Simulated assay, not measured.
Amino acid sequence: MLRGADRAAFAVAFVGRLRRAGVRVGLTETDDLVRALGVSPPVTRELLYWTARVVLVRRFADLAVFDRVFAAVFEDASPPPAGDAVAAVRRDDDVHVPVPAAPGAESAPGGGLPWATLPAPVAAEDDAEDGVPGVPELRATHLAALAERPFEELDAAETERLGAALAASLTRWPRRRSRRHAADPRGRTVALRPTMARARHTGFEVVSVVRERQLLRPRRVVLLCDVSGSMRAQTAAYLQMMRAFATVAEAEVFAFATSLTRLTPALRQPSLRAAIDQASESATDRFGGTRIAASIAAVLDSHHGNALRGGLVIVASDGWDGDPPERMTAVMARLRRRAHRILWLNPRAGVPGFAPLTGGMAAALPFCDALLPAATFRDLTAAAQHFTTAPPG
């Protein structure tokens, strides 16, 4: 029911009317209403009524006032006056417009909903580097809604924004224990050499003990993405994911269809458009057949295979493989002995009733630590959080 409306602006304006009518509502209740609308989007006016009533009304004496204010807002459906609370919380560059009623429903005066806050336009010079005209800047709520949409429903601009949001979410990365140590008063082991060096000044009587701890290093990450014909809808989004991994985590990234292509140098360019264009040109076999087992074997046999030792290996593919399952089993067994963890991202894993019935997926699954869905940017963000929160090992 609030499609196209800014939930925060709506909650502040509605609470402002309740406060002027005498209902005791504070900032805590306003924040609770914004969160409740995000958790349970109101598809009908009745559901919106009960959500707002449960969150905002704390006294029985306020029920009649709440019903009167709610009816005045959603039955009259007139935009708030100039001195309303919306004007106090809106920015100078916000535009408030009525939202049309649903198709087939009677159009109330004002267009069905009292107001909606449109995003502010971005100046054209902000995108002058890429030659793209100014477009509305999406807010966090709009990006969250786009992140839940399948990849094939997103245009190029939306995919780039969500790719940037995915890169910004990679603030942590899995780490491993190294063989090096550093002095730390909270360390569990005693550093013998520094301790004895201090004891030389006290007649070799150990007066102070120097403790140390193991240093943690970022774990190596290798990402292999399927860009074959069956993954055409996911290729643009997966290129954004590969760039995020290559730039933020300094991962080794590869694309494969019938052959293997290393995209790490191309995707580490400063310019996003140039990186994506060069990566697309480098993968000459994209949208063709699929040879997953042969591609993984090519990584193992190359000099980049050393990055797999003790590393985190992520394979993004639907599991449709042109190689026989026996070869996939042999290759994954080799990879399992070399890698620390293996994660498989499958765009169809989140579909209800999904089962890994394809030969390649069924052969690879026993060697994987986790099979995660990857059909939306929300899935990719959740997958990133899944392996970034892993304890160091």
Rank of each mutant, 00 (worst) to 15 (best):
L308H: 13
R309G: 02
G310Q: 13
G310H: 04
G311T: 07
G311N: 08
L312C: 02
V313K: 01
V313S: 07
I314Y: 03
I314V: 14
I314F: 02
I314C: 14
V315R: 01
V315D: 01
A316M: 06
S317I: 01
D318Y: 00
D318K: 00
G319I: 14
G319E: 11
W320T: 11
D321Q: 09
D321E: 10
G322N: 10
G322W: 14
D323P: 02
D323I: 05
P325S: 12
E326H: 13
E326V: 10
R327H: 12
R327A: 06
T329S: 15
A330E: 08
V331S: 13
V331P: 15
M332E: 14
A333M: 12
R334D: 14
R334E: 11
L335M: 04
L335E: 05
L335K: 04
L335Q: 13
R336E: 01
R336Y: 03
R337Y: 14
R338Y: 01
R338P: 04
H340Y: 15
H340K: 09
R341N: 10
L343M: 09
W344K: 03
W344M: 02
W344Q: 00
W344H: 10
P347L: 02
P347K: 04
P347F: 03
R348H: 08
A349R: 02
V351D: 00
P352N: 15
P352V: 15
P352E: 15
P352T: 14
F354I: 02
A355E: 14
G359H: 12
G359Q: 12
G359V: 07
G360R: 01
G360F: 00
G360I: 00
G360K: 00
M361I: 13
A362F: 12
A362Y: 09
A362S: 15
A363W: 15
A364D: 08
A364I: 09
A364L: 12
A364H: 04
A364C: 13
L365K: 00
L365I: 01
P366A: 07
P366H: 13
F367Q: 00
D369E: 09
D369Q: 11
A370T: 13
L371T: 04
L372V: 05
P373R: 08
P373K: 02
P373S: 10
A374R: 11
A375E: 00
A375S: 09
A375C: 09
T376R: 03
R378W: 00
R378H: 02
R378K: 03
R378G: 02
D379R: 07
D379P: 00
D379V: 02
L380E: 03
T381Y: 10
A382C: 12
A382N: 13
A382D: 10
A384H: 04
A384I: 05
A384N: 07
Q385E: 15
H386L: 09
H386Q: 06
H386Y: 11
H386G: 11
